[in-house]
């Protein structure tokens, strides 16, 4: 049903703990902000390519993560060449692509469940502020479970609309959908209450 972009593998990058990868990613993205010369951006690019080779996720998976950027890169290059000069344009654009590529590598090499568990652990220090990590993971699984349910509600409403003869009104679709989502939510809330969540 719903799967992330995870590419199974046994490389060093895959086996590194999710929390560590997230920490490295945060540091690397900050460091990239300070890479202002073509030399440093080149070094950063070499490191990112080396990590992709090390992780062996395959070219198709890597391209799948970067593809949404392709038009933006073109537009960015054109604008920056116009307002600045070519080296600046290349440096700025490459920095952006590298940050996205690095973040995508974490996504490609880490299971969704591991990332969620790392997030839950990361929220522990916020317990003092009233954030309950157990409730956060309950929320995440409830939301995941609700995606196919809501998609199903949308499908039923669409079929009903077709049966009535191809109505054009989007509102006649969206209002019942929102009401359906609320009914589903409130039924789910009662089920949680019945299981003693509020006690």
């Amino acid at each position: 049903m719903l799967t992330g972009a995870y590419v199974p593998g046994r490389s060093v990058v895959h086996r590194a703990p999710a929390g560590a990868k997230l920490a490295v990613l945060a540091v690397a993205c900050t460091a990239l902000v300070f890479a202002r010369t073509p030399l440093w951006v080149g070094v950063a690019g070499a490191v990112v390519v080396a990590l992709y080779v090390l992780a062996r996720v395959g070219r198709r998976a890597a391209w799948g993560q970067l593809r949404p950027l392709r038009w933006l890169v073109v537009v960015l290059m054109v604008i920056q060449v116009l307002v600045a000069d070519l080296p600046t344009a290349v440096t700025l654009t490459a920095r952006l692509v590298l940050a996205v590529a690095l973040a995508a590598l974490v996504t490609l090499t880490t299971r969704t469940t591991d990332l969620m568990a790392a997030l839950e652990r990361g929220l522990r220090p916020f317990r003092r502020l009233g954030v309950d990590p157990a409730r956060v993971s309950l929320l995440m699984s409830l939301a995941l479970r609700s995606v196919p349910v809501v998609a199903g509600i949308a499908g039923r409403i669409r079929e009903a609309r077709w049966a009535r003869g191809r109505e054009r009104s989007v509102r006649a679709f969206a209002v019942p959908l929102v009401v359906g989502v609320l009914r589903h939510a409130d039924a789910m809330g009662e089920a949680l209450q019945a299981r003693g969540l509020d006690d």
């Binding site: 479970r145 609700s146 609320l182 939510a185 809330g189 509020d198």
Partner: peptide, 13 residues
């Protein structure tokens, strides 16, 4: 619980 369920359902929406 009711709020948790609504938050989760709207995230899915």
């Amino acid at each position: 619980a009711g709020d948790l369920a609504r938050i989760a359902a709207f995230a899915a929406f």
